[in-house]
Amino acid sequence: MSNWITVCRQEDLSPSTGLCALHQGEQVAIFFCGQTSDLYAVSNYDPIGEANVLSRGLMGSLGDAVVVASPLYKQHFNLKTGECLEDPEHKLKTYPIRLESGEVQLQAA
Protein backbone atom coordinates (compact mmCIF):
# COMPACT_ATOMS: atom_id res chain seq x y z
CA MET A 1 0.00 0.00 0.00
CA SER A 2 1.24 3.42 -0.71
CA ASN A 3 0.27 6.86 0.47
CA TRP A 4 0.77 9.83 -1.80
CA ILE A 5 0.99 13.32 -0.36
CA THR A 6 0.14 16.38 -2.45
CA VAL A 7 2.83 19.05 -2.30
CA CYS A 8 1.61 21.49 -4.95
CA ARG A 9 -0.56 21.88 -8.01
CA GLN A 10 0.43 21.41 -11.64
CA GLU A 11 0.10 25.13 -12.38
CA ASP A 12 2.73 25.89 -9.75
CA LEU A 13 5.35 24.23 -11.97
CA SER A 14 7.31 26.31 -14.49
CA PRO A 15 8.63 24.34 -17.44
CA SER A 16 12.26 23.22 -17.05
CA THR A 17 12.77 24.81 -13.67
CA GLY A 18 12.70 23.43 -10.18
CA LEU A 19 10.92 24.19 -6.95
CA CYS A 20 11.32 22.97 -3.40
CA ALA A 21 8.74 21.26 -1.21
CA LEU A 22 8.83 20.35 2.46
CA HIS A 23 7.91 16.70 2.56
CA GLN A 24 7.70 14.87 5.87
CA GLY A 25 10.42 17.11 7.31
CA GLU A 26 12.71 16.75 4.29
CA GLN A 27 13.54 19.33 1.64
CA VAL A 28 12.71 17.87 -1.79
CA ALA A 29 13.66 19.49 -5.11
CA ILE A 30 11.04 18.91 -7.79
CA PHE A 31 11.70 19.38 -11.50
CA PHE A 32 9.30 19.46 -14.40
CA CYS A 33 10.60 18.96 -17.92
CA GLY A 34 8.75 21.21 -20.37
CA GLN A 35 9.63 19.09 -23.41
CA THR A 36 8.70 15.64 -22.05
CA SER A 37 6.36 16.59 -19.17
CA ASP A 38 8.35 14.23 -16.93
CA LEU A 39 8.55 14.93 -13.19
CA TYR A 40 11.60 14.31 -11.01
CA ALA A 41 12.16 14.56 -7.26
CA VAL A 42 15.53 14.51 -5.48
CA SER A 43 16.92 15.83 -2.22
CA ASN A 44 17.29 19.62 -2.19
CA TYR A 45 20.59 19.39 -0.28
CA ASP A 46 23.74 19.83 -2.37
CA PRO A 47 26.26 17.51 -0.67
CA ILE A 48 29.21 19.28 -2.32
CA GLY A 49 28.20 22.91 -1.76
CA GLU A 50 26.59 21.88 1.56
CA ALA A 51 23.46 24.00 1.22
CA ASN A 52 19.77 23.50 0.39
CA VAL A 53 19.85 24.86 -3.14
CA LEU A 54 19.42 22.17 -5.81
CA SER A 55 15.85 23.19 -6.69
CA ARG A 56 17.33 26.45 -7.89
CA GLY A 57 19.77 24.78 -10.32
CA LEU A 58 19.52 24.70 -14.10
CA MET A 59 17.89 21.66 -15.61
CA GLY A 60 19.10 20.05 -18.82
CA SER A 61 20.47 16.92 -20.44
CA LEU A 62 23.94 15.43 -20.82
CA GLY A 63 23.84 12.63 -23.35
CA ASP A 64 20.79 10.61 -22.39
CA ALA A 65 20.78 11.66 -18.74
CA VAL A 66 18.38 14.32 -17.51
CA VAL A 67 20.33 16.38 -14.99
CA VAL A 68 20.32 19.40 -12.73
CA ALA A 69 23.49 21.50 -12.40
CA SER A 70 24.13 22.73 -8.87
CA PRO A 71 23.73 26.49 -8.70
CA LEU A 72 26.75 26.68 -6.40
CA TYR A 73 29.59 24.81 -8.11
CA LYS A 74 27.85 23.38 -11.19
CA GLN A 75 28.27 19.63 -10.60
CA HIS A 76 25.64 17.60 -12.45
CA PHE A 77 23.23 15.28 -10.67
CA ASN A 78 21.24 12.68 -12.59
CA LEU A 79 17.61 13.43 -11.76
CA LYS A 80 16.54 9.80 -12.20
CA THR A 81 19.21 8.12 -10.10
CA GLY A 82 20.48 11.00 -7.94
CA GLU A 83 24.05 10.20 -8.94
CA CYS A 84 26.62 12.99 -9.25
CA LEU A 85 28.20 12.69 -12.71
CA GLU A 86 31.50 14.29 -11.71
CA ASP A 87 31.81 12.53 -8.35
CA PRO A 88 29.73 9.33 -8.18
CA GLU A 89 30.43 8.85 -4.48
CA HIS A 90 27.88 11.60 -3.91
CA LYS A 91 24.37 10.37 -4.54
CA LEU A 92 21.17 12.28 -3.87
CA LYS A 93 18.17 10.62 -2.30
CA THR A 94 15.42 10.29 -4.91
CA TYR A 95 11.68 10.32 -4.27
CA PRO A 96 8.83 8.68 -6.19
CA ILE A 97 6.68 11.43 -7.69
CA ARG A 98 3.50 11.54 -9.74
CA LEU A 99 0.90 13.85 -11.22
CA GLU A 100 -2.60 12.93 -10.13
CA SER A 101 -5.65 14.98 -11.19
CA GLY A 102 -3.62 18.16 -11.49
CA GLU A 103 -1.85 17.57 -8.20
CA VAL A 104 1.86 16.91 -7.77
CA GLN A 105 2.32 14.13 -5.24
CA LEU A 106 5.26 12.56 -3.41
CA GLN A 107 5.07 9.11 -1.93
CA ALA A 108 4.95 8.93 1.88
CA ALA A 109 7.76 7.05 3.54
Binding site: S14, S16, T17, G34, R56, L58, P71, L72
Partner: peptide, 16 residues
Protein backbone atom coordinates in the same frame (compact mmCIF):
# COMPACT_ATOMS: atom_id res chain seq x y z
CA UNK B 1 13.02 31.71 -16.84
CA UNK B 2 14.48 28.23 -17.29
CA UNK B 3 17.50 29.72 -19.06
CA UNK B 4 18.62 31.91 -16.24
CA UNK B 5 21.72 30.93 -14.33
CA UNK B 6 22.05 30.75 -10.55
CA UNK B 7 21.93 34.49 -9.99
CA UNK B 8 19.65 35.76 -12.71
CA UNK B 9 16.84 33.38 -11.92
CA UNK B 10 16.14 35.11 -8.60
CA UNK B 11 17.65 38.47 -9.53
CA UNK B 12 20.22 38.29 -6.75
CA UNK B 13 23.72 36.94 -6.11
CA UNK B 14 23.58 33.51 -4.48
CA UNK B 15 26.03 33.14 -1.61
CA UNK B 16 27.63 29.97 -0.29
Amino acid sequence: IGLQDTNDIFLGNMQK
